[in-house]
Design a protein around this nucleic acid. Structure first.
Length: 562
RNA sequence: UACCCGGUGGUGUAAUGGCAACACUUCUGAUUUUGGUUCAGACAUUCAAGGUUCGAGUCCUUGCCGGGUAACCA
């Protein structure tokens, strides 16, 4: 079909491609993405979404969106809506195939009765504790439940009464009758239904018995005609059970394939931990730009293309790897470098007065919007006697390798003139508050007619025309590369990076930014990529998020030389 | 301790019995009106030991190391 040729396939695509060419399922390919609506989608889900929807696209198949909503105690419609939005944003479309496991409660119930009739399931009165005890351990075979040999009639009657609500929560379960001595724990008579008198976000109070994951999942796949049921490695041991149910039902039987989930350095992707960060106010909600959630990345300024590209690059295997964050950063830099308009913004302003520039005057300078994209055109920027430059672009005692401004040295003001620092103005505390400089009017546009060269080019903003903004800088959420590797006796939240958010106020931006709209992305030249915060930015008070910094050879060199 | 699954540069992957390849990171250098971009170069005897084979990262055996699994969670 549309599968790329001459390109190596990952092992999942290899299976799909082989099945298709062998005519399995008549060449049909149908996958699904099955999130539980109990939290927001994160970057690990993106890997799964790209895999499932990507395979469907490549092999001329379909991919369903199915919410695995079998545990009403943890699930909520808020999550359903957020998940849908995130998948759409990522760029995928389930068309008319939006499903819920709860759509199948009736069929599941009928199938359960079929298993009971066949002697493959029974109602068990053991408490959760008794079940655990009877299950045994890795080196200890399980023992049969005393209720295991109930008659079909009794099981049918009891199961019906479970459904009718005659019993209290936890009083009874329906269990598959498999093998209490199996080496695979999942086969030691797993629970199929538990009693929970709770409201379900979709079925309301229609049910008080709810199917377990294992009972619901494979059967849902089957009903939807799924051909390849792709899930993560921790379900590997569940596959024999997945197969057992379908074999004993004689139903359409998809193939379960397991791959290694994404683990990204300096962050966590455990839903439990993400929920704790949100509920404990360690972050500003699910879409906090430091969160590894898709809504967090979106607010931070990531493009869906960059995340898809990242998922493409990391591949799909069964190896438990720790993917370096630099791979993700590379993906977003690569995309933003191509599409983000360049602007000048001074994050930590230092006033410059050009003594030989006429007072009360100003002029417009031409600037290229994006050197990577001629179609982006040019714009004009006001220039005048008083400017702001980046504080870090001036150093009193500059080493020879410092290509920026120092007293007596000349630099180029991007798109403007050569500028020479004549003297430094300090306050009583000895802090530099202003630079007195001169410019060379002959160097308009940044070239000297006499051919003299200047080593550095710095960005600037006209003080008279600058717009003020708040800029939020983000660092790793955690201080440790693998925050799941928590030292003994340490709470994982102690590994949170206290400096993960730095808020800068009164940053000075070129005036064109006054028009910036929510979500707009820019490169602040020499600084990084920034976007207008979708939550907090207003026309009166601009707020920018730093998506990612530019690679910085100078700070690297500094570090290296001590 | 039982079962299942893994192990290729610092990181992520490729090589489908035939010259260990690609991307990222790091380091060199060139170019540059962004210390960005771009370009060029450097960085491995494939966990170990045996075996099969003309030939093994790949197949077999054993060992070592890592991960998962004993919810009425998913």
């Amino acid at each position: 079909m549309n599968a790329p040729e001459n390109e190596s396939l990952d092992f999942v695509r290899q299976i799909v491609a082989d099945d298709q060419s062998n005519g399995k399922h008549a060449g049909r390919v149908h996958t699904r993405f099955p999130p539980e609506p109990n939290g927001y989608l994160h970057i690990g889900h993106a890997k799964s979404i790209c895999l499932n929807f990507g395979i469907a696209e490549q092999y001329g198949g379909k991919c369903n969106l199915r919410f695995d909503d079998t545990n009403p105690e943890k699930e909520d419609t808020e999550y359903v809506e957020a998940i849908k939005e995130d998948i759409r944003w990522l760029g995928f479309d389930w068309q008319d195939r939006l499903f819920f496991a709860s759509d199948y409660f009736d069929q599941l119930y009928q199938w359960a009765i079929q298993l009971i009739r066949g002697g493959h399931a029974y109602v068990c009165d053991q408490t959760a504790e008794e079940v655990r005890e009877y299950r045994g351990g890795w080196n200890k075979e399980g023992r049969n439940s005393p209720y295991r040999e109930r008659s079909v009639e009794e099981n049918l009657d009891l199961f019906e009464r479970m459904k009718q609500g005659e019993f209290a929560d936890g009083e009874k379960t329906l269990r598959a009758k498999i093998d209490m001595t199996s080496a695979n724990m999942n086969l030691r008579d797993p629970a199929m239904y538990r009693i929970r008198h709770v409201h379900h976000h979709r079925t309301g109070d229609a049910w008080c018995i709810y199917p377990t994951y294992d009972w619901a999942h494979g059967q849902s796949d089957s009903m939807e005609g799924i051909t390849h049921s792709i899930c993560t490695l921790e379900f590997e041991n569940h596959r024999p059970l997945y197969d057992w149910y379908l074999d004993h039902l004689g139903a359409h039987h998809p193939q379960q394939i397991e791959f290694a989930k994404l683990v990204l350095s300096y962050t966590v992707t455990s839903k439990r931990k993400l929920l704790e960060l949100v509920q404990g106010d360690y972050v500003d909600g699910w879409d906090d730009p430091r969160m590894p959630t898709l809504s967090g990345f979106r607010r931070r300024g990531f493009t869906p293309e960059s995340i898809r590209q990242f998922c493409n690059k990391i591949g799909v295997t069964k190896f438990n790897s720790l993917t370096d964050l630099s791979l993700l950063e590379q993906s977003i830099r690569e995309h933003l470098n191509k599409i983000a308009p360049r602007v000048m913004g001074v994050l930590d302003p230092l006033k410059v007065v050009i003594e030989n520039y006429p007072e009360g005057e100003s002029e417009m300078r031409n600037a290229i919007n994006n050197p990577e994209d001629d179609a982006a055109g040019i714009r004009t920027i006001p220039f005048g006697r008083e400017l702001y430059i980046e504080r870090s672009d001036f150093l009193e005692d500059a080493p020879r390798k410092f290509f920026r401004l120092t007293v007596g040295r000349e630099v180029r003001l991007r798109y403007a003139y050569f500028l020479k620092c004549e003297s430094v103005v300090k306050n009583d505390a000895g802090e530099i508050v202003e630079l007195r400089c001169t410019y060379d009017p002959e160097t308009a546009g940044g070239k000297a007619p006499d051919g003299r060269k200047v080593k550095g080019t710095i960005h600037w903003v006209s003080a008279e025309h600058a717009v003020d903004a708040e800029v939020r800088l983000y660092e790793h959420l955690f201080t440790q590369e693998n925050p799941s590797d928590v030292p003994e006796g340490v709470d994982w939240k102690e590994l949170l990076n206290p400096d993960s958010l730095k808020v800068l106020t009164h940053c000075k931006l070129e005036p064109s930014l006054a028009e910036a709209q929510s979500g707009d992305r820019f490169q602040f030249e020499r600084n990084g990529y920034f976007c207008v915060d979708a939550q907090d930015s207003t026309a009166d008070k601009l707020v920018f998020n730093r998506t990612v910094s530019l690679k910085d050879g100078w700070s690297k060199a500094k570090k290296k030389n001590g």
